[in-house]
Every structure is written in C-alpha cells, then in structure tokens.
C-alpha cells in the first residue's frame, strides 16, 4: 500500500471532500449512516455513475450535498416525487432517497405512501432522530409519546408513526429498521434495498444529541448508542404491527418485509403491452447509448 492511500479514508472518493467537515453536530449519527451507505456503495456491483442521491430538507437533507454522486438537494418533503420523476425519466438510474423522518414522514408523508403503493423502484434511507433537528428540536410525526420537544414543552401526547408498519401497509417491497449502531446491518440492508426491484425503505434510528437528547436529558451520543445497544432486539420478519417505539422503550429492529411485486415500470410495461399490443414500445429498456 502506498503512502497516499494510507492517508485517505477509503470512502473519500465517494464524498465531496471539499465540503468536509460536514455541518452535523458532535455525536450526531447521520455521518455514521453516511459511512454505512458509502460502504454499501463500495460493496455494491452497481456502477457508481448510475446512482443518484436525492435528499429533501433538514439535517439528513444535507446528505446529498456530501455524497459524490449525481446528487439533488430538493425542497422539504419532495425528495420522493423528485426521485420518482428522475427514475421514470432515466430508468437505468438507481435512485436513492436519503432524508430525515420529518421530511419523509411529516411534510412528505403523502408522497411516501404513494411511492410505496406504486412500488416505485426507489431505495429510501430514512434517518429517524425523533424530532425536527435542523429547526431546533420540534415535535415530529415520529417523536415518541411523552418525549419532550421544543414545541411540546409539556411532553408529546400524540401517537407517533411506526415507520415500518406504514411502509408495509402502503405496499413497500422491502422494509428494514436498524439503529445507527448496527453499522454493518445498515450497510447490508442498503445493499439489499438497492438490489431490490421495487420500493425499499431502510429506517435508521440515529442519535440527535444537541436537541432530542439534551431536551430529554438523555445524555450525549454515547448514552444514546448505549440505549440502542441495551434496548434493541433483532427480530427478522416481525409483524409490523408490533413495532411501535415508546419513549426510551424497546427497539425492535431487523428486516421485516422482503417481497416480490412488479414495480411501476414493469407493471406499466406489462399492462400497456397487453392492452396496446404493437402500438406500445416497452419503456426503459430501449437503448443504453
């Protein structure tokens, strides 16, 4: 190994190093999930020039800006429909949506369920830090009941979404949940998700130290990782109805759904060629120029 290689983190070629250090706080886990994603890219057989990353807005929304692939930093909540257009326009692309819980399940929830219903061939990596972090720790659709947030100063009395349950019900082909501490399992799930010919969701529970943890007096990043370590339980194939997350309660993780169903383009091609016959040219399989 030459000296130059010794000086470089082996994922640096996948990052926009001219933008590092990133904006995330000390102890934030988003960087760890990015590393897990980069590992998945290194291990994957997919040509890197054919992978696009789309993010929305928020802390995790900044991921697109750090990944050195074709990358799009879009508007709040609209990463999935943007990715839908991108994928349909250029089906040879592998499109990864990398964004936060507020972006995908709060403001963008409607797009999520419809993309899952259509089985759009997208890989969605959702970093769930239980709150709106970029804006200062407001209550989110994923904040556990009883947790405190800057806009729930008396505690949250709403019931949060169970992300895998929602993804399952909406029709996703692949659904997994991990914590940021499950480094290699996150990598493996992202690989499996990208290889899946349909809609896949990987939820990664990630520490937000500056806001969620501080407001709830949960300590620092290490304390949150310890919570993940102590309270997470791997149950592959668990019934998605049983995956609710209570405040500092048990975290059921694993791969819950892995099923086959025609994706949007395949379903369209199959249906249209049946109905229109020779009038229809199969979409997305024409040329590779």
């Amino acid at each position: 190994m030459n000296d130059e290689a010794r000086q470089k983190n082996p994922i640096e070629h996948l990052l926009r190093m001219d933008r590092i250090p990133h904006i995330w706080c000390p102890g934030c886990g988003i960087g760890t999930v990015v590393t897990s994603f980069a590992e998945a890219l290194r291990k994957s057989n997919i040509e890197l020039d054919k992978i696009a990353v789309v993010s929305g807005i928020g802390c995790t929304g900044r991921v697109a800006g750090y990944i050195k692939l074709d990358s799009f930093h879009t508007t709040h909540g609209r990463a999935i429909p943007f990715a839908t257009g991108l994928k349909l326009a250029n089906p040879e692309l592998k499109v990864v949506v990398f964004s936060g819980d507020g972006d995908i399940f709060g403001i963008g929830g409607n797009h999520f369920i419809h993309a899952a219903r259509r089985n759009m061939d997208l890989t969605v990596i959702c970093v769930n830090n239980f709150n709106y972090a970029m804006t200062g720790g407001q209550v989110a659709a994923t904040t556990p009941t009883d947790a405190n947030a800057s806009t729930a100063p008396y505690g949250n009395f709403e019931q949060p979404f169970s992300i895998p349950y929602l993804a399952d019900a909406a029709g996703a082909s692949y659904v997994a949940r991990w914590t940021a501490l499950h480094l290699r399992r996150v990598t493996k799930s992202i690989q499996e998700g990208m290889d899946k010919n349909g809609f896949s969701l990987i939820e990664v529970i990630t520490p937000c130290v500056t806001l969620y943890a501080r407001r709830n007096r949960l300590g620092d990043g290490l304390n949150l990782l310890k919570y993940y370590y102590d309270k997470s339980e791997i149950k592959h194939g668990a019934d998605t109805r049983d995956l609710d997350i209570s405040y500092q309660g048990k975290l059921i993780v694993g791969k819950f759904i892995d099923r086959e169903r025609p994706n949007f383009i395949d379903a369209m091609n199959q249906h249209m060629s049946t109905v229109l016959g020779d009038d229809y040219e199969l979409y997305g399989r024409i040329n590779n120029d």
């Binding site: 789309v54 943007f82 257009g85």
Partner: peptide, 19 residues
C-alpha cells in the same frame, strides 16, 4: 401524481433525468 406538490417535483426530477 398524488398532488400538485408531487407533480411539479416529479417534473424537475424528470428534466434532470434528461426528459
């Protein structure tokens, strides 16, 4: 699309996809 927010977002994506 599911709404007009999605329509316009899908358009921008499609254009960056080359259409």
């Amino acid at each position: 699309m599911e709404d007009e927010l999605g329509s316009i977002a899908s358009l921008i994506g499609a254009v960056w996809g080359g259409k």
